[in-house]
Design a protein around this nucleic acid. Structure first.
Length: 450
RNA sequence: CGGAGCGUAGCGCAGCCUGGUAGCGCACCUGCUUCGGGAGCAGGGGGUCGGAGGUUCGAAUCCUCUCGCUCCGACCA
């Protein structure tokens, strides 16, 4: 993309409503625009990040055999009356009446609807196990939206639902989701720690929340410091293997890690004192096993091998996709702006033309732009007629992890500059070497998508 | 929902107390000069002050109502 033809309304000054770094930077970098309390437009740059996050979520879900579909944002109240949640959910649910005076609602979640889909089409245990998911906008009428997209009223969420014949199978699905989530967050450059949590209105007995440690997090968390040493890495997992998934669950959940909802001082005290940590975290996902809570009242049953009809065991799993955009910034920024992890950056690399209009600089930039794009890179080429300082400031603000700076001075020796946003370090090298270096840097990112 | 505050140009703000029909910085447009870390000078365009009503000769300024937004608290992917 040529910046001169892009739509990137960056702000020099910080809008007064933004209190935390991610909100401030998303506004300043021209990623979002607030349209009402807790409701945002995603401007081109923000939209690209949102799509990258979404893409990673899709890839990791499908890697585990989970099947995507799409359910509507508006739902009939009848389904929710069936489960009993129409009355239970309270003010947070946005209720709508259509012209025929029928009660609708803007879905805050989709357990009822997915259960309805399931019961309409699945009758035999032979169709199990089954995990369906979608990435769709949700609405929860928060009393007090704040922190930009981190606590909006309208938000994009991946929600998945597993259907299994037995509790054992459903618990395997639970563990499998934990594995997919660990991989998902790592690809985004985040460390998200699974913590034992409270199930809240979704209900159920087994649940973990994934938290990214950040000072601005809304939850207080307590954990054994050993847990932050764990990484999933690029290990290969057979998602059908009960043992392998179980082993990962045990590895990542055996140490003390709880939110304030489930925190137990007596148990925490058993962690060696030097390893006890109290911090704040941002919730970026949650997994639940809730048995037959919905299948039973809503008649989601299958005929088993013995010919008897039994309610299926279910779980649900959510990732806050739009919230992640904020959480990633919260965990990756400095005083100059955002620092995108390679996995989610809106553009892989930025090209800064230091002397727009200079024939040799222009053509060197054009060549880099063309060749990098041909290699599959998403490139932002700053071809505006601006001074160097302004171009650098923009690049730093929007946080592209790598920048190639092209100027007449270096070009005389066939050199350009490759700069890391994170370290701030620059290296001079030929354009060909810069491209080769970028290919090496992004190799793991591109490989992870396969 | 309880408490606090704010709505004046695209953004950030001043003016309001002590009524006299709007100002600053950034951004934007034009020209010249600059040109490796958000340039300088000169010129220029844009708002009737969230909305409605009231008081007054006169309202951004005072009063009433209303809408929106933000912050603190209780609740939440």
């Amino acid at each position: 993309m040529r910046l001169s033809r892009y739509f990137l309304p960056v702000l020099k000054e910080t809008p007064s409503e933004a209190q935390i770094a991610s909100h401030r930077l998303m506004l300043r970098a021209g990623m979002i625009k607030q349209q009402a309390a807790g409701i945002y437009s995603w401007l081109p740059l923000g939209y690209k990040v949102l799509k990258r996050i979404e893409q990673i979520v899709h890839e990791e879900q499908q890697r585990a055999g989970h099947i995507p579909l799409l359910m509507p944002t508006l739902q009939s109240a009848d389904l929710w009356r069936e489960s009993g949640r129409y009355d239970d959910y309270g003010e947070e649910m946005l209720r709508i009446t259509d012209r025929h005076k029928r009660d609708l609602l803007y879905g805050p979640t989709n357990e009822e609807m997915i259960t309805d889909i399931f019961r309409s089409h699945v009758n035999s245990y032979k169709d199990l196990p089954l995990t369906l998911y979608h990435i769709q906008w949700k609405f929860r009428d928060e009393i007090r939206p704040r922190f930009g997209v981190m606590r909006g009223r309208e938000f994009l969420m991946k929600d998945g639902y597993n259907f299994d014949l037995t509790k054992e199978d459903a618990l395997h699905a639970y563990n499998r989701h934990l594995v997919t989530y660990l991989r998902t967050y790592e690809r985004m450059g985040l460390q998200a720690i699974p913590m034992r949590a409270d199930s809240g209105p979704i209900g159920g007995e087994n649940t973990h929340e994934f938290l990214v440690l950040a000072e601005t997090g809304e939850s207080e968390v307590f954990y054994d410091s050993e847990i932050t040493d764990l990484t999933f890495g690029d290990r290969q997992i057979d998602y059908d293997s009960v043992e392998q998934c179980q082993a990962v669950l045990e590895e990542f959940t055996s140490r003390y890690a709880r939110t304030d909802e489930t925190h137990d001082e007596a148990v925490f005290a058993q962690v060696p004192e030097t390893r006890r940590r109290t911090a704040r975290g941002i919730e970026v996902g949650q997994i639940f096993y809730f048995g037959t809570k919905y299948s039973e009242p809503m008649g989601a049953t299958v005929v088993g091998p013995d010919g008897a009809r039994t309610p299926v065991h279910m779980g649900s799993h959510g990732i806050g996709v739009s919230r992640l955009a904020g959480a990633i910034i919260e965990a990756n920024h400095d005083d100059k702006g955002i620092i995108w992890p390679e996995g989610v950056t809106p553009f892989h690399v930025g090209i800064v033309n230091l002397k727009q209009g200079d024939a040799s600089v222009d053509s060197a930039c054009e060549a880099l732009y063309r060749e990098l794009s041909a290699k599959g890179f998403d490139v932002l080429y700053d071809d505006r007629d601006e001074r160097a300082g302004a171009k650098f400031a923009t690049m730093d603000l929007i946080g592209l992890p790598w920048r190639i700076t092209v100027g007449p001075r270096g070009l005389q020796n066939n050199k350009v500059e490759l700069t890391s946003r994170r370290s701030g370090l620059s290296e001079e090298m030929s354009p060909a070497d810069a491209m080769a270096r970028l290919e090496k840097i992004y190799q793991p990112v591109f490989a992870a998508a396969k």
